[in-house]
Nucleic acid binder design. Sequence first.
DNA 1: TTACGAATTGATGAAATCATCATGTCATGA
DNA 2: TCATGACATGATGATTTCATCAATTCGTAA
Lengths: 123, 123
Amino acid sequence: MLSEPNRPLYEVKAGLFKGLAHPIRIRILEVLSAAPEASVSELIAATSLEASHLSQHLAVLRRNRLVVAERRGSLVYYRLAYPQVADLLRVARALLGEILETTQSQLLEHGGLPEIPPVSVSP
Amino acid sequence: MLSEPNRPLYEVKAGLFKGLAHPIRIRILEVLSAAPEASVSELIAATSLEASHLSQHLAVLRRNRLVVAERRGSLVYYRLAYPQVADLLRVARALLGEILETTQSQLLEHGGLPEIPPVSVSP
DNA sequence: TTACGAATTGATGAAATCATCATGTCATGA
DNA sequence: TCATGACATGATGATTTCATCAATTCGTAA
């Protein structure tokens, strides 16, 4: 595995976030952070993806060192490559919660349309 | 700011990572996590980008709620939208360190070419 | 060896992102 | 009001990513 020393660090780091920058891949990683490992068929069930589609996404995760695959017989199992990946997801969840909280309070503050002033009927 | 309630949560979350999925934008966020705020010209100096290029990247960060902008007179200042963004960067840094450590130890284990067996000179 | 299930890779068109130059907007001083 | 600096947005071609279908590979049992 010589690719990492040949890639600038900033590209490796951007690659980590690229791996996470798709809803389906977030879902995969969340499944894997909740269990020690998962087989591809389990991930197919968890994502409702067709096999080749899922494989393409898993390839992105492997390439960016977010997951590792292990073949056992005719089955392939995936797990998070590092526990810090789960930390990333956790912090992102906290950030998302903060964003939603902020957005909700802004809506409450400014919510609704301006009140329509009462119509005064001319005599 | 009604966009968030109109976007599925998984897209909001993917958007966070998308914002981070480019080296220049990581650099911007790292500058902003090391200081309370920075003006655009400071970010231009930190990134060596041309102004309009930087502006496009800053727009991605604003759109994905990673930074907020504040105009004061003719100058615009940027800061992280939430402290959790700095946490994200911190965890990514730890993960990157872990990846490099693993990569280095793998290189040491498997590094170098196989030793050439000594040539036995036939009598 | 063959057949089959599991999983990956390849090919391709559509969509999104990136990088660059041009143009537009905002705030300020004269 | 005009000119100017600061900054944002628009337009566009190149590149990458995404989604889908086809083809290939791997492991196993018969």
